[in-house]
């Protein structure tokens, strides 16, 4: 928590590390850094870049039921874009992300502020809060399958039925509420992480501006909006973006909880890509979907990288 680069800390005085720019390559020959990363780069080319290029290749060909057909130009993409399920999946994803991420964000920030009050046994409590986040998504799905099982599930019987939300069937089978149930599960899994990440950010803030503010008689709300929030912004953006990327590709918990159903109510793009491939065997269109999603992700990634690098000085 103390090892924030000095450049990040305003009003600290002290020597600036940025001035002592190091010699390129530390006097090592030019090839040395490349040699060190060669094995990793070759591996990543084989395991990530080549499969991606292969997916691009397939997406331009007729391919159904595992047989390669003719060159299809943009045929698969046209098919994808005119497929109602594709737009449905995008809509579901946008809804999912637009509800889940801001809620996790706000709950996380609130939690982080509470956690940074003086409390007993904080270091004992923190590991427990990591448990939902570190858990396998499939186990998360399993937990909530048990809690929200139709008719006898603890929450189904004691909370959902009295509220009249979903009768005796599981809420995951309800066309109206299944997506919200999945959003709830996502919030359960990721809010503690947001909380702890923001907490770490709060701990790393420099103390001097806060002292100055206290001297000037700023109240806690002023301090939060004029000091904490501006100084935390890059961090909030980076963590928000990361969460956005991850929320968009959630698959495992949906797979075990609803399988995209009922109907296509909870069919996120990843679930649709899975079904297109392994249920409909329409591999050409599925690859087109994969490529579209991939490009979308790359844009997000780039933004994440630029913000994290420039504003947060993180990398």
């Amino acid at each position: 928590m103390t090892d924030v680069p000095i450049e990040d800390m305003p009003n600290q005085g002290g020597p600036s590390k940025a001035v002592v720019k190091r010699q390129p390559s530390h006097g090592e020959p030019v090839w040395y850094p490349y040699l060190l990363m060669a094995p990793a780069m070759i591996t990543l080319t084989i395991v990530a870049l080549l499969p991606f290029l292969f997916a691009v290749f397939i997406s331009f060909h007729e391919m159904k039921f595992g047989k390669f057909g003719d060159f299809a130009g943009f045929g698969n993409y046209v098919e994808l874009l005119s497929d109602g399920r594709f737009w449905n999946a995008l809509g579901v994803a946008v809804l999912f992300v637009a509800i889940a991420v801001p809620l996790e964000f706000m709950l996380g920030l609130t939690g982080a502020l509470v956690l940074s009050r003086p409390i007993w046994g904080r270091s004992v409590l923190i590991p427990f809060l990591f448990i939902p986040t570190m858990m396998a998504p499939i186990v998360v799905g399993l937990l909530w399958k048990i809690m929200l099982a139709g008719s006898w599930g603890l929450l189904s019987y004691n909370v959902i039925e009295p509220l009249g939300l979903a009768g005796e069937t599981s809420i995951f089978a309800s066309p109206d509420y299944a997506l919200f149930a999945l959003i709830f599960v996502d919030i359960w899994q990721w809010t503690p992480f947001m909380m702890l990440a923001f907490f770490a950010g709060l701990q790393a803030l420099p103390i001097n501006p806060f002292r100055a503010a206290a001297v000037d008689g700023a109240n806690p709300i002023q301090r939060f909006f004029w000091l904490t929030l501006p100084m935390m912004t890059p961090l909030l953006v980076v963590i928000g973006l990361l969460r956005l990327i991850d929320a968009f590709k959630v698959f495992d918990s949906i797979f075990i909880l609803t399988g995209g159903g009922p109907g296509t109510q909870t069919e996120m793009p990843s679930v649709l890509a899975y079904k297109m491939t392994f249920e409909f065997w329409n591999i050409g269109e599925a690859s087109a979907l994969a490529v579209v999603v991939w490009v979308l992700f790359f844009v997000f990634c780039n933004v994440f990288y630029q913000v994290a690098k420039k504003k947060l000085n993180a990398f």
Partner: peptide
């Protein structure tokens, strides 16, 4: 960052 479902195909 690539979604695993895109790689699995």
């Amino acid at each position: 960052m690539a979604p695993p479902v895109c790689l699995v195909i």
